[in-house]
Design a binder for these strands. Structure first.
Lengths: 226, 226
DNA sequence: CGCTGTGTTGAATGCCGTCAACGTCGGTGG
DNA sequence: CCACCGACGTTGACGGCATTCAACACAGCG
């Protein structure tokens, strides 16, 4: 069932069994924390089902959503970065199921299954790249484009086809989108209203449906500066 | 001479010799590119002397400075992230000297010297963390605070004591600072002028001296929002 | 039925980007 | 040596985008 994940491609069955035998599976109800920012990192995780919000809290109490984790992805991999605490909190956006391994097992696991190590480092590399892309976007783009990009990204990573378009597969508020894009819920609300008027999206309570991805793309790429 | 670097602590002499025997040393004159964004990644580097600007170019031709690399730090470590191209360009900010290893040697090197691997991954983890901090700052802070933070960081990482204060050890323009903080050279110029008036910094052509780090810190931490 | 969380919309403020003009420094070549 | 030129820096004026402040609407829930 999980052998199809990109992380596990190229593993032999016995290696998979080896990993699974040492994993713990757990269920995390919606809105609970899987781990907390600055808490001692004692395990790393693989999300089997659900969606997780990775949140950083500033000293002033403002929240920033660093990313969403989707089914099949690793998270909480502080151990692979030589960290002893988690740099952010992980909150279940819906009911979730995840595997976890104790960090003490990391050396043993990677020694036995080198693909686990390489896959983890590739994941970290991708996240570094994505995060740097985000910095570039925040430096160069207007709010409107950033919100459009964020929506497209959500749709691509967690979209579900419906009759009216592609719906984001978990509850998400205007406030959440604002915290992803570095703006306010007011501005997000205004933008979504305007886009709904133009027939690009359809909104709802904790719900967003993108009806015209291409139209959104045009907004995302349309640059006013320069 | 290089055994004192954090990267190499805990290595035996023979391991160090093994690494050095396979390294190539080269000199990069000021303003030359060590490698280019999206170019094929065929080596990774260790900066022995100088300062390097890591730059990302947007499709629209705008530049963003992702970070500065200082002596003793690794850079261009695409291979450790499973990448085949460099995600950014590396430009020598001053005349530089760097060691480099071909990427093909990576498996052999890390197999023989595991500290190289763990040190590299720790570096990547730190950069991911720093980059995410930057996203948080860009989401929550005003321009003034971001520029103050950037200056403090530069001073801390590349500061040189002088009679008047701590000087940033390489030529840096207002434009550079603007590209680090996601603003314009105009705004940076205005801020620096205002700070000079208050006695916090002293400016100059391609030069910045921080005379009152504590005062700058107050500006960096002073939050207007919330 | 009130309360809380969520969402919408209007109006006003202000930060900072944009446009513009000018000044200064340093290198280069005649 | 000096004139020239380009890169770098400064400052003023203006305006727009997004935040801030405010009020209200609506849904879900106990």
């Amino acid at each position: 069932m999980i052998a199809g994940l990109p992380l596990f491609t190229g593993m032999r069955n016995e290696e998979l069994d080896f990993l699974l035998a040492r994993a713990r599976s757990a269920r995390y109800p919606k809105d609970t924390a899987i781990f907390d920012q600055d808490g001692k990192a004692d395990a790393f995780f693989l999300l089997l089902d659900g969606h997780i919000r990775v949140v950083r809290l500033t000293p002033e109490g403002e929240q920033v959503i660093a990313r969403y984790i989707n089914a099949g992805e690793l998270f909480g991999i502080a151990v692979a970065m030589g960290r002893t605490t988690y740099p952010a909190s992980a909150i279940a956006a819906v009911d979730c199921v995840a595997l976890s391994w104790p960090n003490e097992a990391w050396p043993e696991l990677t020694a036995r299954v080198p693909q686990l190590a390489s896959g983890t480092y590739r994941t970290i590399g991708q996240r570094l790249q994505e995060t740097q892309d985000k910095v570039v976007q925040m430096s160069t783009e207007q709010v409107e484009q950033r919100v459009a990009h964020a929506l497209l990204r959500l749709v691509q990573q967690a979209g579900r086809k419906t009759g009216e378009g592609i719906e984001i597969d978990f509850p998400i508020t205007r406030q959440d989108i604002a915290e992803m894009t570095g703006t306010t819920l007011h501005t997000v609300s205004r933008l979504l209203s305007a886009w709904e008027e133009k027939g690009l999206v359809r909104g709802g309570r904790q719900k967003v449906i993108v009806t015209d991805p291409h139209g959104l793309m045009l907004i995302a790429e349309h640059r006013r500066k320069r």
